[in-house]
Design a protein around this nucleic acid. Structure first.
Lengths: 352, 352
DNA sequence: CTGAAAGCGCTTACAG
DNA sequence: CTGAAAGCGCTTACAG
């Protein structure tokens, strides 16, 4: 528990009431901008507030109203730039609705996640918006879901029918592969992530959809599972190259995997965008500044984060069903890494 | 203000007391693990707690004790990977001390920063740890600093004698330039940032120190101010190249500037690490995966964040002076972008 | 070792 | 339009 700290007694509405010559009920009404208060009375109260340097005590109000104005924000890995962008959008939307976010970064640790959910509940959060840690057991969330709305984002927790917001992973991955096929690529590998992640399964499904519809090879050997990180991208490339099969392009699980893959290929003298194509997913800020600039599937991260926060607050307010779901459109952003620009084209945008 | 939400009356210590057959004072003592309670009594109370699914109401406790256990975390730009890493370290340390962080991302907006500080104060935070928005006027913080400890990190606010934690920017930049000089570079430019940022002035001072001590040119024309972003790095390079002066190396304000600079040079056919040297500052995760891997000054971000949180909590507890300050050591991380590895060396680490 | 009582700073019917 | 009163769920001396 926190240690104490000596403090002079703070100014309360009782002090304001005394100075303004009214009751504390009236002060309270002024504070919430009630139209019931006569303008002159309001002016006297506001005068006293300024004079005494009064600071509203939300904790006291919360106890009375049983509403804290706090919302939990549980992020699986804030050092991943994708989730950082998502977190910024969520944070913004939470403040915009008059709420305040309590942050927790779980570093993909489901035990830590349970711990912080418990703490947030003790703090009386109105709800929680979370990107669940990998391998979150659904039973670890059921108790919390009964006590407060739990909005999941980017990752579904199987077996837990929670509200969910995420991009259309399948359509997005398929659009990326179709673009590669259109450029003449005829042997494409999928690198990064693994089947324990719902997102990976969805993106992989889109990858298969497009390959099958083009009549191209699509077997298990083409899938190189690896951590969804830059390092994972490097490792997957090492294995793909060691296999001896000459892929013409790689679809990466996400942008940081694609960036790691690009670095690994460059180190081996393979020039991305000329010798081989690489496409990512997410369109994080650094994708445009990669060398070469990365073609990727824009999942509209900011919009998704804002949407998730909006929906959570609607569920809290009771104006949205407990089981809402939103799947966002994706859009392919063509840059140089797929090889398209080598043919002199301008960057284009396509809807998934 | 938040909207209400219908809820069944929650279980309180009074309910626990009734079921366990004790007074609520005793329940409270059990809750805080007091040794005064007899083991059998404790067991009965804990039994009742489990049975009724009681959840501790921290808000109520806060009102009584005048301590909330909340700490504010105000970040100037969470989409900058450097600050995201910093935020993660801070968040971790805050939880480790039994506190809970309220997050605000100001996007470098001093007005928004003032707004969130006001809100955090109303929520009764014990203190705030903040990377101040650029051009934060010191007067905008004085009132808050009187009401609660304000720990600044990475950026000093001039004119406000606040506790501060940051890296040794001057020594770090000087060590980077000395390394470049040792490799034979004899005309080095500084790219990114501008003089309104204390950090830029400190890093620039180190840049000058090392150039002067080596007897190399050091004039205003060598400094290319630009936004401290990837895009800023690109723009600074465009201007440096357009100047006609043939710099042999660039010291960037930070890693993302260096990454943008690398991309801009590559696009123009200048090979970083062979034709020209580039060195960054911060050692963010993507520095190692840049193409080529970026030589940079490691500011020990995680350690700095943890230290800032530790110090803030000491100030809150009254065990550290109100005006603490900590300047962290830096260390040069040599990778390929400065050209050193082209000569067959192994990556080395040096203390600043 | 346990209980009765007061009080933290608000909000909210209810009177008037 | 304004005030008196009750109460949110805890903690903390103080008795016993």
């Amino acid at each position: 528990m926190p240690q104490p700290r000596a403090q002079r007694r703070q100014t309360t509405i009782v002090d304001i009431a005394r100075v303004a010559g009214v009751s504390k009920s009236t002060v309270s009404l002024v504070l919430k901008g009630s139209p019931l208060v006569r303008p002159e009375t309001r002016a006297r109260v506001e005068e006293a507030i300024g004079q005494l340097g009064y600071v509203y005590n939300r904790g006291a109000a919360s106890l009375r109203t049983a509403r804290t104005g706090l919302v939990g924000m549980v992020i699986s890995d804030l050092t991943n730039p994708f989730f950082a962008e998502l977190a910024v959008a969520i944070e913004e939307a939470i403040y915009a609705h008059g709420y305040v976010p309590i942050l927790a970064n779980t570093s993909e640790d489901a035990a830590r996640q349970e711990q912080v959910l418990r703490t947030m509940r003790e703090y009386g959060v109105a709800g929680v918006i979370m990107s669940p840690a990998r391998r979150t057991p659904s039973w670890s969330l059921v108790d919390f879901a009964k006590a407060m709305p739990l909005m999941t984002i980017m990752r579904r927790v199987e077996g837990a029918p929670l509200p969910y917001v995420g991009p259309d992973n399948r359509a997005g991955a398929a659009s990326a592969v179709r673009h590669l096929v259109g450029l003449g690529h005829n042997d494409v590998a999928f690198v990064g992530g693994d089947a324990s992640m719902a997102t990976q399964r969805e993106r992989l499904a889109g990858f298969r959809d497009a390959l099958l519809e083009a009549g191209l090879p699509c077997d298990a050997a083409q899938i190189y599972e690896a951590a969804p990180t830059r390092q994972g991208g490097r490792e997957a490339i090492a294995r793909a190259l060691a296999s001896g099969r000459r892929y013409t392009a790689y679809l990466a699980y996400n942008d940081i995997v694609a960036i790691g893959a690009t670095a690994a290929l460059s180190e081996r003298g393979v020039e991305v965008g000329r010798d081989v194509g690489v496409v990512g997913f997410d369109d994080i800020a650094e994708a445009a500044h990669n060398n070469p600039p990365l073609t990727t599937v824009d999942g509209r991260t900011r919009a998704l984060g804002a949407r998730a926060a909006d929906l959570l607050l609607q569920v809290i307010a009771g104006s949205a069903p407990q089981a809402v779901e939103h799947i966002g459109e994706t859009r392919l952003v063509v840059r140089a890494s797929c090889g398209a620009l080598a043919r002199g084209g301008e960057p284009q945008r396509k809807r998934a």
